[in-house]
């Protein structure tokens, strides 16, 4: 029996990240017309949806690249105003972008601290950065890189992804958003990155994983949030759902059978999202 997240027993602590009724337009294009998501600490929440459903737009809004036009973002239950990447970082939100945002000409340590270097007076504090980078990589059980002074250009896709993820957790972040981390990886490296994603959640972080790949999603996610044409179709527990149900939600915005997923109760009737019809 699939349930929406709102029908779960009231948790003792507020979710690490919550978005309610997030909307975003670019001119006449309504990219997001009401998205809701709940991301809990210690869990991997997958964000799925077809191409153009608004996944990337949604995480860019959460990350402050461009803010939501309207709607609420709650961090640990408290309303957060995020209008830039700096404010997102300050709120404990880190994003690992699909294009990784690593500079090929710098080594692993420099990339991990890029834009937030540790300094000793005027000079960079290379020793401190190196130590901290090594600690974080060790805490993530990353043993695949030969030297943390290796240039990123010489790393494999999986290693680059690992560095990007390590950078995201370097800052005592509470919420880590991963945009298609396995899209460009082979089988072995995908497995490695998924294990890393699981370890992040097991270590108590709230992980939001954007993915196209149902195998990945069902392997690591605790909860699955489905976007359909810029709206949230449903958020379901992985253990309570089947692939067929989730794929039906992705492709039609509605559950395959009437009783599988109930409409979200906190939504006004005019913007019911489970049936895919839009109020216009």
């Amino acid at each position: 029996m699939t349930q929406t997240v709102d029908e779960r027993p009231t948790p003792t602590t507020a979710p690490a990240l919550e978005v309610r009724e997030g909307r975003k337009s670019f001119g006449a294009v309504h990219a997001l017309r009401g998205v809701d998501i709940t991301v809990r600490a210690g869990e991997v929440t997958a964000l799925v949806g077809d191409n153009g459903a608004g996944k990337s737009t949604m995480i860019k809004c959460i990350a402050g690249i461009f803010p939501f036009d309207s709607g609420k973002v709650l961090v640990n239950g408290a309303p957060a105003s995020i209008h830039g990447p700096g404010q997102a970082s300050a709120a404990g939100i880190e994003v690992v972008y699909q294009d990784l945002a690593l500079c090929d000409n710098l080594d692993i340590v420099h990339n991990m601290f890029l834009g937030r270097e540790m300094k000793k007076g005027l000079r960079l504090n290379e020793t401190a950065m190196e130590t901290k980078a090594a600690d974080v990589l060790a805490s993530l059980s990353v043993r695949t890189v030969r030297s943390i002074r290796q240039q990123v250009a010489s790393l494999s896709g999986g290693q680059r992804q690992t560095v990007a993820i390590a950078r995201a957790v370097l800052w005592n972040s509470k919420i880590v958003i991963l945009d298609e981390p396995t899209a460009a990886l082979g089988v072995a490296q995908t497995e490695q990155v998924l294990q890393l994603v699981r370890r992040l959640a097991d270590a108590g972080l709230a992980v939001l994983l954007i993915s196209h790949n149902m195998n990945d999603v069902f392997e690591v996610a605790d909860s699955i949030n489905v976007l359909y044409l810029g709206q949230t179709a449903a958020q379901v527990r992985t253990s309570d759902s089947t692939r067929a149900e989730v794929i039906e939600l992705i492709t039609s915005g509605a559950p395959s059978t009437g009783e599988a997923v109930q409409p979200r109760r906190d939504r006004p009737a005019t913007s019911t999202t489970t049936n895919g019809s839009r109020p216009e």
């Binding site: 990447p85 945002a101 500079c103 090929d104 834009g115």
Partner: peptide, 24 residues
């Protein structure tokens, strides 16, 4: 070689988009 400014200059020259996303 030894300041954050220098590091940012190299990063920007290599990949301005990535550097922007890193908050530079």
């Amino acid at each position: 070689s030894y300041t954050a400014w220098g590091r940012h200059l190299y990063a920007t020259g290599d990949d301005a988009e990535a550097s922007d996303l890193a908050g530079i």
